[in-house]
Amino acid sequence: MDQLHRDLIIDIMSRLDGCTVAATASTCIDLRDAVEDEILWRKLCNDTWPSTSKTQLPFHKTGGFKSFYADAFPLIVNRGVSKTIHTSSSPWDFISLIDIYYKGHCIFSKVMDAIIEEGIYASCRHNILKRFFNYPFKLNLLDNLTNLPSTAFSDYEERGYKIVGDLRLSWIVFDRRKGKAVNISSWKPRTVHKCNSSEEGYIICFGCIVPIEDGVTTHRLAECVITAKCELMIKQGCIRWEEITLVIKDMDGSHLNGEQSVRVMKRALNCSRSVNHDAVELGYQQFCKQKIQLKLKDEKEESLANLFCATIAIATLLGICYACATLL
């Protein structure tokens, strides 16, 4: 510490990732004080998620950029159930900050002030809310204004699948009432499919698994699914985003409605998280297994029910036949 003065060390620190900075803070008291600096954490947040510089986040007294980073950097891990909180929330409580990266460079960022699209009928908020709560939840990120191609790659030799596989997505949900944040993306794509309609069109899915315990749905896990539809313009080195949507699904694949989705999001804000992406991936694989088992179980139950129905039908028919025969 004698050789390098504090400003220089902070300068070096500001080029690190937040994880290393937070861990380095425990080297000595002086450095700890130095890295508590809000400007340093603001820079780290803005560098990691350029969308954070596009909006003024309504931080509470307790949390600033450091706690935002600590909330939003680790990913949700499917590990046990978090504690229950009973407060009402509205879709206007949640701000979404979305960033998409290609090979470490941010190629798209957007902020959405609510998880509801108000449209032109903003005057009758009550009706909008009623509609939102009862219908399946779907948040569309793109409107015609933002549907511009983003320059991404310059390596024309790369194959389409490779390019799409190298995309990373971060979707931070910030609760303006609680001042807390969570990242509901998987960072890496979960699945990549080729789109049938065009040659270089792809459908990429990101997301997370949220453990839930109370009676939101019949199952104990819900899945946030972020679907990005894009077209690669290989010659121009651009990606044209056609659709980026968020839906929340029950374990059986059915879409949750707005009310349930808000509750899942609130739950996500209190989930346990990890910076270890392998642990996150493992949790997802377990979820997939459970999903398949559930499906098999449902199918089995369905076939049993079918068998039962068929038996009753045959029995009734035989009964009718017998009755007719005796009458005649």
């Binding site: 937040g18 900075v21 937070a22 861990a23 600590a70 998280r273 990890s274 910076v275 270890n276 642990a279």
Partner: peptide, 12 residues
């Protein structure tokens, strides 16, 4: 200190 910043240490 390590407990407070546990998120940064987790499984790394």
């Amino acid at each position: 200190i390590r407990r407070l910043d546990a998120w940064a240490w987790d499984d790394r």
